Amino acid sequence: MSQGPLDVEEAFNRHKNIVPQVRQAYEQAIADIFADLSAKELEPFAEILVQQENTCLDTATIIEQLKNRMTGILCRLNHQFFDINGVDNKLITLEVLKEKFACHQGKNWNVYNIAPEDFTRPVRMRLIDSSIRFMERQLESQQSQLELALTKCHANRQVLQNLQDERVKLKAIMEEQSSIFEEAKPILLELDNQVIDLL
């Protein structure tokens, strides 16, 4: 069942407290990176300064300053990463999705334990999809050929119609000529008889 806009907004508001928790956890992890840094780490540098410049190095103060500075730099970089990439919204979205699909938690998603029909379903669906696309291309080709054939058929019908019209016209002319000949036939026979009488 799909969630409405109000349900989604309510779910986002419900999980907003995850953001400060994650940010705090990152800041603590960054602080822990430099927690083990001690004065012993700078003893070699102190000995060099004593030998070269006859100067004592206050390692405790430098270590504290180094810890604070490096922690501050990494924390700023972490905040920029969160802000630029919209991590806050993505964290809330992740929590909403985890809540929505909690009913699937603990299920066995091992693909080797599912039935062969389910295992091969994606491949079969892809093949069916390819077959459908092939048949669609075939139908498009046949449609194009059908349209071309219909165009030729229409042109041939027009030629036949023109021939039929010409045939009707010629038949009318022939019938008219035959009628004139039939009317003239007695006169021609009379003239023929007169010529024979004169001879």
Rank of each mutant, 00 (worst) to 15 (best):
M1T: 07
M1D: 07
S2P: 15
G4R: 11
G4D: 08
G4V: 09
P5I: 13
D7V: 11
D7R: 12
V8H: 06
V8Q: 07
E10K: 15
E10C: 07
E10I: 06
A11R: 15
A11G: 00
R14S: 12
R14M: 10
N17V: 10
V19I: 14
Q24K: 11
A25I: 01
Y26T: 02
I30M: 04
A31P: 01
I33D: 03
F34R: 03
F34M: 10
S38L: 02
K40G: 15
E41S: 02
L42S: 00
F45H: 04
I48G: 02
L49Q: 11
V50D: 09
Q51W: 06
C56D: 09
L57S: 01
T61S: 13
T61M: 11
I62C: 03
I63A: 04
E64H: 04
K67C: 01
M70N: 10
M70H: 02
I73D: 03
R76T: 13
L77K: 13
H79C: 05
H79E: 14
Q80I: 14
Q80D: 13
F82V: 14
D83A: 15
D83E: 15
I84G: 01
G86K: 10
D88F: 02
D88L: 03
D88T: 04
D88M: 03
N89K: 06
K90I: 09
L91H: 02
L91Y: 03
L91V: 04
V96K: 04
L97M: 05
E99I: 05
K100Y: 05
A102N: 08
C103G: 08
Q105Y: 06
G106Y: 04
G106R: 08
N110T: 09
N113H: 08
I114M: 09
A115D: 02
P116A: 05
P116N: 04
D118M: 01
D118P: 00
F119W: 04
F119H: 01
F119P: 00
F119M: 03
R121L: 09
V123L: 13
R124M: 06
M125W: 00
R126H: 05
I128G: 06
D129I: 01
S130F: 09
I132N: 11
R133W: 02
F134A: 13
M135Q: 08
M135N: 07
Q138C: 11
L139V: 07
L139I: 14
E140R: 15
E140F: 13
E140A: 14
S141G: 11
S141F: 15
Q142C: 08
Q142G: 03
S144A: 14
Q145G: 08
Q145S: 14
L146I: 11
L146C: 06
E147Q: 15
L148M: 13
A149H: 12
A149L: 09
L150Y: 05
L150R: 15
T151Q: 14
C153I: 10
H154Y: 08
H154N: 15
R157P: 00
Q158K: 14
Q158C: 03
V159T: 10
Q161V: 01
Q161T: 04
Q161Y: 05
Q164V: 03
R167I: 06
V168S: 05
K171V: 02
A172G: 08
M174K: 05
E175S: 10
E176M: 05
E176S: 13
E176Q: 12
S178D: 06
F181E: 08
E182I: 06
K185H: 07
K185R: 10
I187L: 12
L188N: 00
L191N: 06
D192Y: 07
N193H: 10
N193G: 08
N193P: 00
D197Q: 13
D197A: 10
L199E: 06
